[in-house]
């Protein structure tokens, strides 16, 4: 086997489960998001936008790590229930009222704010005797992104402080 063969392997795209997703590394999440916040879900409601239902979660912003945000941010996630109808997308994240998350958010031209990469941009925040931590299940193997390059996925089982610091360091460093 030659090195050339490995290079060929990298041409293969990675399609993540669910909806069809492109895997985003933590670096991607930080850089491609327009805002990163730590917040608590205050309430949720559903609205329609054309053929789509969106579940909107009002997030009380506890910390803002990237982007400008006020005391609250309204995050829209495809799917939901409204007026006797229910729309479901496999892989769409669910934000639980009262729970705390670190959210990697993205605002399009319409101004609607969504979670980046479906579930990939949602990190639950938990507290135990050792403090606050984030607990998104991690991709422990090196995988490939849609451009065929290996995704250097960081361990996301870390303390909240570590994630905060990682976001700040990433934003402060030049893009690779």
């Amino acid at each position: 086997m030659t090195r050339r063969a490995f290079a060929l392997l990298l041409l293969a795209p990675l399609w993540l489960p669910a909806a069809t997703l492109e895997q985003l590394s933590l670096d991607d999440l930080i850089r491609k998001s327009t805002a990163v916040v730590r917040g608590r879900v205050l309430s949720s409601y559903t609205s329609s936008r054309g053929a789509l239902l969106y579940t909107h979660s009002r997030i009380q912003v506890l910390e803002s790590w990237k982007g400008a945000s006020g005391a609250e941010v309204n995050v829209a996630i495809p799917g939901g229930a409204m007026n006797g109808f229910r729309q479901a997308f496999s892989g769409a994240p669910k934000l639980t009222e009262g729970s705390e998350y670190v959210l990697f958010l993205w605002a399009g031209k319409s101004g609607m704010i969504q979670v980046i990469g479906f579930s990939q941009g949602v990190f639950g925040v938990t507290r135990d005797g050792q403090g606050e931590s984030v607990n998104r299940a991690a991709a422990t193997e090196t995988m490939l992104n849609s451009s065929g390059r290996p995704v250097e996925d960081a361990d996301v089982r870390m303390s909240l402080a570590e994630l905060r610091d990682l976001v700040r360091r990433t934003l402060a460093s030049p893009q690779k």
Binding site: W15, A19, G84, F85, R86, W106, Q114, I116
Partner: peptide, 21 residues
């Protein structure tokens, strides 16, 4: 409905039913 919408990075396609409750 096959639609083209403003979706965040990381999402390539999604599909699902809208059903009565």
């Amino acid at each position: 409905d096959v639609i083209f919408d403003e979706v965040p990075p990381g999402l390539i396609a999604a599909g699902g039913p809208t059903a009565r409750s």
